[in-house]
Measured scan of single mutants.
Amino acid sequence: DHDVVPEDKFQETLHLKEKEGCPQAFHALLSWLLTQDSTAILDFWRVLFKDYNLERYGRLQPILDSFPKDVDLSQPRKGRKPPAVPKALVPPPRLPTKRKASEEARAAAPAALTPRGTASPGSQLKAKPPKKPESSAEQQRLPLGNGIQTMSASVQRAVAMSSGDVPGARGAVEGILIQQVFESGGSKKCIQVGGEFYTPSKFEDSGSGKNKARSSSGPKPLVRAKGAQGAAPGGGEARLGQQGSVPAPLALPSDPQLHQKNEDECAVCRDGGELICCDGCPRAFHLACLSPPLREIPSGTWRCSSCLQATVQEVQPRAEEPRPQEPPVETPLPPGLRSAGEEVRGPPGEPLAGMDTTLVYKHLPAPPSAAPLPGLDSSALHPLLCVGPEGQQNLAPGARCGVCGDGTDVLRCTHCAAAFHWRCHFPAGTSRPGTGLRCRSCSGDVTPAPVEGVLAPSPARLAPGPAKDDTASHEPALHRDDLESLLSEHTFDGILQWAIQSMARPAAPFPS
């Protein structure tokens, strides 16, 4: 592969990997390779389809078979030569091979799209000592099968071997295949498990690692696999990028399955594409389908809103127990993405979901129960707010008499603000006073009005108090039968009158 990737590009890729991570280095090298001529790309395919690569990765054979028959990708048995050289000459001794072996032994695996480039050397060096003999053996194999790289107009793939297949390693990572398949204008990513390549439709969760975000852009890794992070704060999961590491605690105790298979379609829109997988259930989501939507993949363990709600429900009964003089119970939860139609709101002032922060849900004790107040519409209280300059209440639009249902020339009671006709409430011909108009209920007259088809109010509507207090003497005590009587009149003013009279009014101040 030294004929494909020059030394300066190799060093530039290593520097970019240390600065921005393996995914960015892979993407940059792939983009550079696509700008080369067809001879360089053909050399790339020839390096990929060597015999030892085909033996190690069985899924490469179907890719090789898909090439046109007129494309010669065979390799000479006596060494490598550029395709432009007409004579089959043995190339001179390859010093770059020693360079590659020494550099890969030092860096474990470079971040390139060629056999030198995919593992994360920093994480491997940190986690190597417990498994040094086995990992050293794996390093000797890295130059042979560490990076199976493929690129063409139909298929483009980048393979990364790992030393996680050490025997006896619980939940060992089998390997990473960062794979971009450009077929019919689409893009897919796969993962390699035990020599087999699994596409998103049959993606397997190998051991402790999972394909957290099938994305090839942005600074985030394709698999949430930063070796420096180790395990999740809650004892979460091992990262795919942690090559040759000792077994780590796999999943939280509440995880239903340690080796679950995540779905390959969004649980909201039932469509495929780039998904984020939940650590607590097999569901996966688009970032845009979450509520609120996320802009980037959160670091650490992530769970959907259903799993978060289940966790909150487990903690909430203990938080609601009476604990005198104790601060509110704080339950730190990872930043969760909410699927459509589901929402768990945190306290005000918290950062938005999706940031690399930890939301704190506070379970406050329930407030003391209070008697429910009568629910009145805002339009129902409008007549009470229509007060004239002299303190006389004006008529609201649409006000109707509670007896006849007519809204023409209605009066407004100064005591309960109900609309009424003087002739309907006082049919006996009582003279109307000039000021202080009161309806039949507030004036103490319980004589029913002779209106055909309208039920008369119940005599129990009024329960006047002592006459010594004029204001308190007109406080009506309405009961269920009074409400039914008012409802039978089918008037809004009657219902409003009952609601206003049912509310307690402050006692009249004593004259000074």
Rank of each mutant, 00 (worst) to 15 (best):
F510D: 08
D255K: 05
A467H: 13
D356Q: 01
Q501I: 01
P347H: 05
E342Q: 11
V454R: 07
W422G: 09
A463C: 10
L294Y: 13
N262F: 08
A472T: 00
P322W: 14
T447Y: 07
R318S: 10
P511A: 13
G241Y: 11
S254P: 04
P459R: 07
P466D: 07
G391I: 00
P457I: 12
G429A: 09
I276D: 09
V344L: 12
G272F: 04
H479V: 14
D482F: 02
G273C: 09
P351W: 15
D482W: 01
C386T: 13
G494A: 04
S441P: 12
R432I: 07
E390F: 10
G453Y: 06
E342F: 15
G407V: 14
V329F: 10
R461P: 04
S441A: 09
A340L: 07
P282K: 04
G375H: 14
G346W: 13
G273L: 04
T414D: 09
S443A: 08
A504H: 07
E314K: 11
L250H: 12
D445W: 05
L275F: 08
A353N: 07
A463L: 12
L252V: 10
S291N: 11
P292H: 04
C289F: 06
G391L: 11
P365V: 14
P433M: 06
L252C: 08
R412W: 07
L486S: 03
H479N: 10
G453K: 08
L455A: 13
G375C: 10
D481N: 03
Q309C: 11
P511G: 14
L385S: 08
L364C: 07
A399D: 07
F420Q: 01
K261V: 05
C439F: 03
P317F: 13
R338I: 02
P327T: 07
V360N: 11
P253N: 04
V454A: 10
E452S: 09
Q243R: 07
A288G: 13
L252H: 06
E265L: 08
A456K: 06
N262D: 09
L381S: 05
D255H: 08
Q313G: 12
P351M: 14
D445T: 06
V344D: 03
F492C: 02
E343S: 11
T408I: 11
L294N: 14
L381I: 14
A499Y: 04
N394E: 12
G391V: 13
G280N: 03
P450S: 07
L252N: 09
S379H: 13
